[in-house]
Computed example of a mutant assay.
Amino acid sequence: MQAGSLIVSGADALEAFARAAAERPQATALLCDIDGTVSPIAPTPAEARVPAAFRDLLAALVPRLGLVAFVTGRALEDGRRMIPLDGAAYVGTHGLETMAVDGPLVVEPLAERYVAAVHETAQAAARDLDCEALGVVLEDKRTVLAVHYRLAEDPAATRRRILEHVVAPARRRGLAVATGHFAFEVRPPLPFTKGTAVRRLLDAGGHLAAMSCGDDLTDVAMFTAVRDWGERDARRRTLALAAVTGETPRPVVEAADVTVRATPGVYRALRRLAEAVGAV
């Protein structure tokens, strides 16, 4: 790594992908997480923002590439509110909600049967946890409940309380639980992930190159799905880019072809892509 560089590793892979995208921009797909990737990590989900420079850069990429899709754990409409771009596709709640380019919002029908259990878990969490004192933020996304504890003064103790009062009861209700950056997510026990969603998006188009960008464990499924898609056709080129900080889980780093320094590094990488395809 060069001193002071925002590209931590994989600079050559990034450059090779940019050259491939330059040859066929309309056959290139960009699949991008939001929080921690194009939006700096914030104390609470409500405080997160996509910087104006990022919005402008991504807006310039939309008409130049064959597909720009935002793939988030947020509710789809919430993610779309953060970065509302005409011509982009959206995936919400880790693949349970999708919106194709200029299409309607579609919720996975199987998820509906778990809405009541998720709601009951959210109500119990609000009742049994002193969220304000613990530094816990509950984010009810209807089909998914996110429990954030980034603000906790004692993260280890708070984590134990969440395991006891949220995770264990959720599992007894037949729900699945995933972990992230100072967060747990309670969700339906269904085989839908960011990976399954992006695979459907890629299979629906004639893409020959795909770049996926993320920062957390749920993004590993996206990295893996894009890589598997690429391996099915020798003409295809893929790139997985991870925004890393001191909190980044090891599996995220190991699954990436390129690692960059948090959101400023993602901006630098996407700027290089934009330059290559003539978007800036």
Results as ranks from 00 to 15, higher is better:
3 A>I: 12
10 G>E: 05
17 F>I: 11
20 A>I: 14
21 A>G: 11
21 A>M: 11
22 A>C: 03
22 A>L: 01
24 R>V: 10
27 A>V: 02
27 A>H: 10
27 A>P: 06
33 D>G: 11
35 D>H: 07
36 G>T: 08
36 G>Y: 02
36 G>Q: 02
44 T>M: 09
49 R>V: 15
53 A>T: 14
53 A>F: 15
56 D>P: 14
57 L>Q: 07
59 A>W: 11
62 V>L: 06
64 R>L: 05
71 V>G: 08
71 V>C: 09
74 R>K: 02
77 E>R: 12
78 D>N: 15
78 D>F: 09
79 G>A: 04
81 R>L: 06
82 M>A: 08
83 I>A: 00
84 P>M: 07
84 P>F: 03
85 L>N: 11
87 G>D: 11
88 A>N: 07
91 V>G: 00
93 T>K: 14
94 H>L: 03
97 E>M: 05
102 D>T: 08
106 V>Q: 12
106 V>P: 07
109 P>N: 02
112 E>Q: 15
112 E>Y: 14
113 R>H: 04
114 Y>S: 01
117 A>E: 15
118 V>F: 03
120 E>A: 13
121 T>I: 10
122 A>V: 13
125 A>G: 03
131 C>Q: 10
132 E>P: 02
132 E>D: 14
134 L>K: 06
134 L>A: 09
135 G>P: 02
140 D>A: 04
142 R>P: 14
144 V>C: 05
156 A>F: 13
158 T>I: 07
159 R>A: 12
163 L>N: 13
165 H>D: 11
167 V>S: 00
173 R>W: 13
178 A>C: 10
182 F>S: 14
183 A>K: 07
190 L>I: 07
193 T>Q: 01
193 T>D: 03
202 L>A: 02
208 L>Q: 14
208 L>C: 15
211 M>R: 12
212 S>E: 13
212 S>H: 13
215 D>G: 03
218 T>V: 10
225 A>F: 04
226 V>P: 04
226 V>C: 05
228 D>A: 15
235 R>C: 12
235 R>M: 10
236 R>N: 01
237 R>I: 12
239 L>W: 10
246 G>P: 06
252 V>T: 02
253 V>Y: 02
253 V>F: 03
255 A>T: 06
257 D>V: 01
259 T>G: 01
261 R>A: 08
262 A>N: 07
269 A>E: 00
273 L>P: 02
276 A>S: 03
277 V>E: 04
